[in-house]
Structure formats: structure tokens, C-alpha cells
């Protein structure tokens, strides 16, 4: 039963004179795996930064579960249930793998400074829950054995996976993945696809995905939007996008060679 989870309504974003996004609209339904593709500099990451509140759109509105989130700060948007990863991995690199995931759950825990300081029952209960969730999540991506390693000492693929489970610790209903397969080998990409499918099927998470790997995108995305110079030039199923002449001319023609 699909319903509107995220809605972008005529979003524009300007940086000085540069129009990074130009009146982009689309709707992500619950349980979608929604892909965003387009050449470098098309505005894909900017779109993520708008949804997660790092920027406020110059024009237009963003709705999450029907609520306008334009002016909410990032930490509030996270707590509403939007998790994300970053194109240039942003882990807490000198902290342990486990700590990274525990911090990931910050937005859904509530105990305050004094409750933590004196380790009051509420803080203890939340801590226990956080640790259970973290263990489950780390097991899911085969990182539990490395829970005490520094995040910076993980391989590139492991770091990308860690960043995903850190976002999952928020129990998000929407997960934004910015080029999750970048730098992964074919085996790791295969695993990643499994994980993403698992998130959708077993954990009911809706996924918005930016990716340059066309094989991955065409394989797992039910719906795809194409951005070019900040404008949405197409939207549809994988099949429709593959056969869209404008998309082939502006992006797919070159992407396949990459």
C-alpha cells in the first residue's frame, strides 16, 4: 500500500549566481527504491543536502509525511526519520565502529545531561536498547567482529557499510544513500544490493539513492529520476529511462563508457 513519503515541490537552489537546482519536483512513495542519476555537477548531492536541512531551498517546498520540512535544522530532520550517508564518507574516524553506530541512534534517544551523568534508569534503558540495535545492525553487515576497530582503519567498502548502519540506527523510514557503491569492488557491490533489498523488504525502509553505477541502479531501482544541469529531464521505471532519448544523449551515452 503505497503512500507519499517524500514530496519535492518545485525546488530551486542557487549558490550565488549558480542555479544548482531548477524547479525540481518528484514524489517518493513508501517502500520505493528511488534512484537519482545524472552527470557530475547535476545537483544530486545538493538535493540530498536540501532534504536533510543542510541548505534551505531558495524556492519551493519539501514535505516529509505531509509535513513541510523546509526550515527544519538537520538534527530535527534526522530525528523525524530521515537517515543519510555522504558522498565523501563522514565517519567519526577516531572512534570505534561500535561508537559510530551508537552515536547514529542519538536522534531517537532522549535522556538528558543529568540523566546520563548520574546514569539514571531511563538513560540506562536507552543505552541498553542502543547497544542491542547496534549489535544487530553490525551483524547484518558483517562488521560486528570489528566493533572495537577505529572507523578510520576499515577498508573503503567497510566504511561505506558502516556509514549505512550508522544511519540505520536512527530507525529511519527514509534512507538517503549518496553514491554508496563508489569505490567498491564487484563482490562488495553485489553485497550492497542484497543489503538494500533487505532494507526494503525486511525493514520497510524507503530508499532514495544517488549512484553512477548504472548496473546497480537499473537492477534495484523501481523508479528513477534524471537530473541534468539542475533540471529534471526524465522520470520513470528503469525500462523507460533506458529508452529515453534525451537521457541517452545527456548521460547514459557517456555513463556506460565510465
Amino acid at each position: 500500500m503505497a503512500e507519499e513519503l517524500l514530496k519535492l515541490d518545485q525546488i530551486s537552489q542557487e549558490f550565488g549566481g549558480l542555479r544548482a537546482l531548477d524547479q525540481v519536483s518528484f514524489v517518493v512513495q513508501t517502500q520505493d527504491i528511488f534512484g537519482i542519476i545524472g552527470p557530475n555537477g547535476a545537483g544530486k548531492s545538493t538535493l540530498f543536502n536540501l532534504i536533510t536541512g543542510i541548505y534551505t531551498p531558495t524556492q519551493g517546498n519539501i514535505y516529509f509525511k505531509g509535513e513541510n520540512i523546509n526550515h527544519l535544522p538537520p538534527y530535527k530532520i534526522a530525528a523525524l526519520g530521515i537517515g543519510r550517508t555522504f558522498q565523501n564518507i563522514r565517519l567519526f574516524s577516531t572512534m570505534s565502529v561500535l561508537d559510530n553506530v551508537l552515536i547514529g541512534g542519538h536522534g531517537i534517544t532522549k535522556s538528558g545531561f543529568f540523566q546520563c551523568l548520574f546514569s539514571l534508569p531511563k538513560a540506562r534503558k536507552e543505552e541498553k536498547q542502543l547497544r542491542e540495535t547496534a549489535k544487530e545492525l553490525l551483524n547484518m553487515v558483517d562488521l560486528y567482529d570489528k566493533k572495537m576497530d577505529y572507523a578510520k582503519n576499515l577498508s573503503y567498502g567497510e566504511q561505506r557499510r558502516l556509514e549505512i548502519v550508522r544511519a540505520l540506527a536512527l530507525h529511519p523510514s527514509l534512507l538517503l544513500l549518496d553514491e554508496p557503491a563508489a569505490g567498491m569492488n564487484p563482490k562488495e557491490k553485489e553485497d550492497l544490493m542484497q543489503i538494500i533489498r533487505h532494507l526494503k523488504q525486511e525493514m520497510n525502509i524507503t530508499i532514495l539513492l544517488v549512484e553512477h553505477d548504472m548496473n546497480l541502479v537499473m537492477n534495484i531501482c523501481e523508479r528513477i529520476a534524471v537530473l541534468n544541469y539542475g533540471e529534471k529531464i526524465a522520470e520513470g521505471s528503469a525500462e523507460e529511462i533506458r529508452n529515453n532519448q534525451e537521457v541517452i544523449d545527456s548521460y547514459l551515452g557517456t555513463a556506460h563508457r565510465i
Partner: peptide
Amino acid sequence: ENEIAAEACGI
């Protein structure tokens, strides 16, 4: 460590 990531975690 990383303010932007911290905000994204709900901090």
C-alpha cells in the same frame, strides 16, 4: 570529529 555527520545523527 565531524559536525555535519553529528547533525545527521540527530545531534
